[in-house]
Design a protein around this nucleic acid. Sequence first.
DNA 1: CTGAAAGCGCTAACAT
DNA 2: ATGTTAGCGCTTTCAG
Lengths: 337, 337
Amino acid sequence: MAVRRITLHDLAKHLGVSTATVSLALRGSQLVSLATREAVVKAARDLGYVYNRSAAGLRTTRSNAIGLGFHDILNPFFTELLSAIEETTLEAGYTVLLGTYQEDPVRMKQIVSTLVEHQPDGLILCPASHATIDHFSAARQSGVSIVQVSREIEGSGIDFVGADDALGTEIAFRHLYECGHRRIGYIGGSEAVSTGRTRRDTYRRLMAESGIGHDPALITEGKGSRENGLKGIIQLLALSEPPTAVLCLNDLTAFGVLMGLARLGLTAGKDISVIGCDDVQESAQWAPALTTIRNHNDQMGKKAAELLFRRIADPQRPMERILLTPTLVERETVSSV
Amino acid sequence: MAVRRITLHDLAKHLGVSTATVSLALRGSQLVSLATREAVVKAARDLGYVYNRSAAGLRTTRSNAIGLGFHDILNPFFTELLSAIEETTLEAGYTVLLGTYQEDPVRMKQIVSTLVEHQPDGLILCPASHATIDHFSAARQSGVSIVQVSREIEGSGIDFVGADDALGTEIAFRHLYECGHRRIGYIGGSEAVSTGRTRRDTYRRLMAESGIGHDPALITEGKGSRENGLKGIIQLLALSEPPTAVLCLNDLTAFGVLMGLARLGLTAGKDISVIGCDDVQESAQWAPALTTIRNHNDQMGKKAAELLFRRIADPQRPMERILLTPTLVERETVSSV
DNA sequence: CTGAAAGCGCTAACAT
DNA sequence: ATGTTAGCGCTTTCAG
C-alpha cells in the first residue's frame, strides 16, 4: 500500500543528483550521460516511480489527453466511430477523456465544461440533438481546439468531419428508383440533428425532382432507433397504398424495420425493399443482410482525430470541413419491382 | 482566440481580492460573504474563466477522474457495461478516462500505465485474455484503487464485480435438459479468460454429472464473436450425430449461430435449440428472439463503480467479490425435443 | 554534463 | 470575512 508516491525529487535524492537531471534522463535526453540515464531508469523502476502527467501538464500546458463528447455509445455506429478515434489518438500518444449526454443539449454543455476543466489538448464532439453553438461555449472560451464529427452545428465555423449525407441519400434513392420503385417511404424523419435534416430533406427533394411527387403520409418521424423503425414500418404498411420500398434514417432504424417485417411474416428484399444508412457491422449479419449506404465510420474517426492534431498544431489554420463520400453496399434487402 | 487563459490570480487582481477568496468563493464556501461570492462568480463568467482541475489536483491529490480499461468496445456487452459505469461515475462527479486493448495483455499493461500517469482516483479494469497480475503492476505500485469488472485475475486479491457464471451456465443447461435435450453442444470454448473457462468447465461438469457423458466433438473453440459462432454451428452440424441444442459462450456467438442457421435454411427454436449468455439489447431484436442468460450488465456496471467509490473512500477495507445472480430469459430459440 | 531556482494554477494552513 | 504564504510535482531557463 504505497502511502506516499515516489516523486522526481525522491529519485533525485536517492541517486544524489538534481531533479532536473532526473527529469531529463527519464525523457531520454541526450543532455544526460548514458550512465546517469540508465541509473535513473533503474532507480525509477526499483522504487516504483510513476510519472505524474498532471504536474507535467501544469508546466508544459499540454496534457496528452483529448476529450471526446458523444451523445450515445449504445448505437453501434457511434461505438465504431469511437473505436476508430481511440485507436488513432492512442497511436499519437493521447489518452481519451470520455463523456456522453444521451441527446440532451443541457447535459452536453455540462459535459463539455467538465472535459475542458481537465485540460485536454483538444476536443472531438458529436453534438446532441438541438445543440447550438451556445452549448460549446465553455470550449470556445477556453480556446481549446475542437472538431465536430458526424453531426455539425451549421455555421459554427468549427472544423467538421462527416459523411456527405445529401449524396448518400441520393445514391440510395437512385438505387431504389432504378429498381423500379416509385412509391418510396421514409422512416425516421428527424429535425433535431444535421444528419437527420439533410437526409430527410434530400429524400423530399428527390421525390419532387424525379416527378414522383411528395406524399407526407410516406414519412414517419422519430430519432434513429430500432423502436422507431419498428413503429414506422407498421405505420407505413397500414396505409391504403403502402410503399414498395423504404429509405431509413440509419441502420438501427432499418433493423427495427426488418424486425417488424419478420414479425408480420414478410421478407425484406421480397415483399418490400429496405435500405439503411451507415453500414454498421451488424448490417452484414442480418438474414436477409441489409443493403445500406456505407459512411466509412472507421475513416471518419481516423480523419476526425487527424484533423484535430492539425488544429492543435496550428490553431490559426482556416476552418476545414471534410465530407466522406458514401458508397452503396448491395446486399439482400432491395429487389426490383 | 484566447491566447492566455484566465487564472484565479487574474480574477483576484480584477476584483481586488486575494486568490484564496476567489478559490473559496468559486467553490461556494460559507466563509466568503454572499456579496463577494456573487461578484466572483460574475467576474468568472464575464472574463471567461475556466477551472483548471489538473492544478487543483496537484494540490488536493484528487483528480475526479476514474480510468476505465476495456479490451473491446465493439462487443455490445461491454458497451452496455461501459455505459452503465459512465452513467454512475458521472452522477458521482467523475470524468472517465478510457483505454482499450483488443485482448492484447501487453497493450493492456501499457494502457494501465498511461491511465495511472493521468492520476485517476481509481481504475475499473476488465482484464484482457491471458492477462496476469503482472499486467496490473503499474496500477498496483501507484497504489491507486482498482476494481475488476466482468472478468477477473483469479487470486489477485483485487476487488471484483461479475456474474456468477457457474450458476448461469447451470441455469441454461438445466433449461435445455428439462426440455428433453441430451445431445448438447458448446460453442466458444475459450481458455483465455475467466468467464470462458468457468462457462465451459461448468458445461463439461454438468454433462458428466447428468449422466450424459462428455463428447469432445461437441465443443468448438474460439473467443466469443459472431464469426466463431458461425463457424462453430457449421462444424457441429457437420457431425454424423449433430447436437439438438447448443450452449453459446455469449450472445455475440449465439448471433453468429443464428446467422449460420438462417443461411442453412434452418430455424432456431424449431430445428435446433440455441441459448446465449449476457442478454444484450440486440438479443430481443432477432427473429426468432434469442433465449439467453441475463447477466444484468447495467447492474454490473453500477455496482462496479459503487464498489470503486467505497474502495477509494477506504483503501484499507477488505477485498470484496460481488457476484450477480443470472436469470433465464426465455424467448424463442429453445423448444422441447 | 549537471545543478539551482523559478514558476505553472491551485488549495490549505495560518493570520489578521 | 479576507489576505499571506507555502507548496503539490514537474519542466525549463540559466549557470557552472
